[in-house]
Design a protein around this nucleic acid. Structure first.
Length: 824
RNA sequence: GCCGAAGUGGCGGAAUUGGCAGACGCACUUGACUCAAAAUCAAGCGGUUUAACCACCGUGCCGGUUCGAGUCCGGCCUUCGGCACCA
């Protein structure tokens, strides 16, 4: 017998599969489909262990589902636009396209070396004109539906990347990609109106029982729905009204000031003819220059300036001072807030600092607060109203309703729902992205590039320089054009789209990757999509996973797809860590997949990574664990091959009743294993326990290699099942072994079924407990009833020893498990 | 501050419905094979105690429910992750 030599085997079968197009799938409405998708990678140049883990999990599912009889689509592609390509252009002078395509080539080679069962014919690369043509087409669709607009706004700007960022891409005030501090800039930018779908995006989380709870909670928090009252306060001196939003209308009688955001539009008018105008303007300027971190940290100082003006609280007619502050957010609600120091901690701190009065309007149940003794605001949502005129004594939740009703009845306010979610800022002042297909005409304003002129291709004659403005804006040939509407001189939009747009619809393009008439054919998309099982990192919990949901809903409303949600089930895999931390170049703890595959082969790499931890948890890399996985595969090799002749000669059907006791036990273990592996893959995704079950089967089978005259029918059953059970995890070695024992490809075999009857035991060991402590074990016939088990237990000498001279209070018997005797 | 997840041998982990804690693997120890080593095969492997059996202790901590708790309930502690002036 030859030794297990993974490299020859793997290369051989990878070639064969490629030649035979083994993973190619076609739409077939008669067959039930299954869509397995792993998040497509950014072409950084090399696969890392996180990719290996992601793809190994997906490949097990894809291969299993194929064997289970589904028409499986399992595609791969590249999320190929983005900053690093442009940075390479700046620092190394390579063209972003060349850099990207050579990385894709290398990573594709690495993916192929892993033996992943992708239908490469469906591959998409988002930076190719035949893909971004349709990204642009979809932008136009959004535009026509009123979901894309350009507006001047205070936006997040990253100096290092030289571009604006979406809210979702700012993490603790820093850029998600380069970690440099983000600051606000007033710019005119393109947005997608995701807020139009805020309510549905929130509500439909309920349609996703197959998503991890924490991802749904994160999206829920991010959307941040709140219900409350919007009402206006008159400013008699200006003849204006200031609308405010509050979730605590019950505290409306406690308002002692009105707080405006420094960016509030009314600030300019307040400054007209105002003796404090210079001071106010200086304050606003200072607030605007504070970093995101300084302004949004809850610990930072609340500052403000009195405008000298007042407005009127419509609920009680009282005058309240108008202040401009640094802690009210311009973008949320109305950019103005009613200040209630007694019921809001921020307002409390602000009022204390500036000597603004406080009025207590809520008393908690069971105790009496007084302002003199309070050191902080009472913010609990419990209690009843005081100092609130006609609402005094009312329970606060009832008061919320009553007060909103009154505001609506009197016409100065209305019920309102607010979201934390903001519209998606999609403009990027960068080159390597899909150009926004808009032409700016002096006469006609912004005009869509006609559909037949798409794609708006990226020009190639551009310069890349550190710190320069977008290369596209400097490219005269690109910028200058004529208006499609009036034919007059015009200029192109030079911003490109956020790459998250490209990745918001790629899973649909896979269903019809070569279509040059439409982004995808409706029937094909509706057959294959939604994705049945999506697998990827938790880092996309909000970003990509929220954007894709938004896209899907818009496409549904446009009649392009007939489902509400893109990803029916989601599995968020844990990180691969080593020495307690995430693998990273800076920590120097990186293990390269290429090295591992070169040393042990892809099957070992896959098996280790699937065995070391359940998919959702972080996985600690262990070089010795990899050795163990390799040893196991070699063990399988050694147990299967010597039986090849027997297996080939034996018949499929054999007389089970003729098996010896040991043989029968082996067959029992086999069927238990099949059931266990099937359940673990199908329902729990616990590949670690599935693999351990196969190891136990191999351990049970091992002694049989030395035995004479083992039943050939049983040997055949065990060997063929074993190879099939392991096939999704280690596709190459199993294919090689299959070529010695079976016909065709193992991956085209039906998944083995199990026989409940074979799983049954004749005898079982039960535990005998005295007061819950295990004192003995006995073997009894399976299915022995309670009385008989009890009797057998009480007859045991060890049991008698413990019960002797004591009173038996109670006996609990659980058939096939235990007998517990309670004594006193 | 709010929300969430987790805490089990030397290590990764298992115990799916409240019923034998530690499956499987790694590491380690011993034996076989070998001139020797590696590989392989066989056996052992939570702690205290013991020649051995036995016994006692043991799933972050304190308490509760139960014949029986890693699992359920109440109260903490620690670690990690997310959100964080959203009115």
């Amino acid at each position: 017998m030859e030794k297990y030599a993974p490299h020859e085997i793997e290369k051989k079968w990878q070639q064969k599969w490629a030649e035979e197009d083994a993973c190619r799938t076609e739409m077939d409405p008669k067959k039930e489909k299954y869509y397995v998708l792993e998040m497509f990678p950014y072409p950084s140049g090399n696969l890392h262990m996180g990719h290996v883990r992601n793809y190994s999990i997906g490949d097990v599912l894809a291969r299993y589902k194929r064997m289970a009889g589904y028409n499986v689509i399992h595609p791969m592609g590249f999320d190929a636009f983005g900053m690093p390509a442009e940075n390479a252009a700046i620092s190394h002078g390579v063209r972003p396209a060349d850099w990207t395509y050579s990385n894709i080539e290398n990573m594709t080679r690495q993916q192929k070396e892993m033996g992943l069962s992708y239908d490469w014919d469906r591959e998409v690369e988002t930076c190719r004109p035949d893909y971004y043509r349709w990204t642009q087409w979809l932008f136009e669709l959004f535009y026509k539906r009123g979901l894309a607009y350009k507006k001047e706004a205070s936006v997040n700007w990253c100096d290092t990347c030289g571009t604006v960022l979406a809210n979702e891409q700012v993490i603790e005030g820093r850029c998600w990609r380069c970690d440099s501090e983000v600051h606000k800039k007033q710019l005119s930018q393109w947005f997608l109106k995701i807020t139009d779908y805020a309510d549905e995006l929130l509500k439909d989380l309920a349609l996703l029982p197959g998503w991890p709870e924490r991802v749904k909670i994160m999206q829920d928090n991010w959307i941040g729905r709140s219900e409350g009252l919007e009402f206006s306060l008159d400013v008699p001196a200006l003849g204006e009204k200031i609308p405010v939003y509050t979730t605590r209308p019950d505290t409306a009688f406690g308002v002692t000031f009105l707080a405006l955001a420094a960016e509030h539009p009314l600030v300019a008018k307040i400054c007209e003819n105002n003796p404090k105008a210079d001071e106010i303007k200086a304050f606003c300027e200072k607030a605007r220059n504070q970093s995101e971190m300084e302004r949004t940290s809850s610990e930072s100082e609340k500052e403000g300036i009195f405008t000298g003006l007042s407005c009127v609280n419509p609920f009680n007619g009282k005058e309240v001072q108008i202040w401009v502050t640094n802690y009210v957010l311009a973008e949320y609600g109305t950019g103005a807030v009613m200040g209630v120091p007694a019921s809001d901690q921020r307002d409390w701190m602000f009022a204390t600092k500036y000597g603004i009065p406080k009025i207590l309007t809520i008393q908690p149940p069971g105790r009496t607060l007084s302002l003199d003794e309070m050191t902080e605001a009472y913010v609990e949502k419990e209690g009843s109203l005081i100092n609130s005129g006609r609402f005094d004594g009312m329970e606060m939740h009832d008061a919320i309703k009553a007060i909103i009703d009154e505001a609506e009845a009197k016409g100065f306010g209305k019920r309102r729902v607010n979201y934390r979610l903001r519209d998606w800022l999609i403009s990027r002042q960068r080159y390597w992205g899909a150009p926004i297909p808009i032409i700016h005409c002096e006469k006609c304003g912004p005009v869509l590039v006609p559909e037949e002129d798409l794609p708006v291709k990226l020009p190639e004659n551009v310069k890349f320089e550190q710190g320069a403005v977008s290369p596209l804006a400097q490219c005269e040939d690109f910028v200058r054009c004529t208006c499609p509407k009036c034919g007059g001189p015009a200029h192109r939009e030079t911003d490109t789209m956020d790459t998250f747009i490209c990745s918001s619809w790629y899973y649909l393009r896979y269903t019809d990757a070569h279509n040059d008439q439409a982004p995808f054919d409706k029937d094909k998309a509706n057959y294959w999509a939604p994705v049945d099982q999506y697998i990827g990192g938790i880092e996309h919990a909000i970003l990509h996973l929220l954007y894709s949901r938004f896209f899907t809903k818009v496409l549904r409303d446009a009649g392009l797809v007939n489902f509400d949600e893109p990803f029916t089930n989601l599995l968020t895999q844990g990180m691969v860590i080593k020495d307690g931390g995430k693998m990273s170049k800076s920590k120097g703890n990186v293990v390269s997949p290429e090295e591992i595959i070169a040393k042990y082969g892809a099957d070992t790499a896959r098996l280790f990574i699937l065995f070391a931890a359940p998919p959702e948890r972080d996985l600690e890399w262990s070089d010795q664990g990899v050795e163990g996985a390799f040893r196991f595969l070699a063990r399988v090799w050694r147990i299967v091959l010597p039986f090849a002749e027997i297996v080939k000669a034996a018949a499929d059907h054999y007389d089970v009743s003729a098996l010896t006791k040991e043989e029968k036990e082996l067959r029992r273990i086999l069927h238990v294993t099949i059931a266990k592996v099937t359940e673990d893959i199908e329902q729990r995704f616990t590949f670690n326990t599935a693999i351990s079950a196969v190891m136990e089967l191999v351990n049970a089978f091992y002694p049989f290699q030395d035995k004479e005259g083992v039943n050939p029918g049983l040997v055949r059953e065990v060997v063929l099942s074993l190879v099939k059970l392991l096939a999704p995890f280690a596709p190459h070695i199993t294919e090689e072994l299959w070529s010695h024992v079976g016909e065709g490809s193992v991956h085209a075999q039906p998944w083995p079924g199990y026989d409940e009857a074979a799983m049954a035991q004749d005898e079982v060991e039960i535990v005998l407990q005295i007061n819950g402590k295990v004192r003995d074990r006995i073997t009894v016939p399976a299915g022995l009833d309670k009385q008989a088990a009890e009797k057998a237990a009480l007859g045991q000498p060890r049991v008698q020893q413990y019960t002797d001279g004591k009173t038996i209070v109670k006996v609990i018997a659980v058939p096939d498990k235990l007998v517990n005797i309670v004594v006193k």
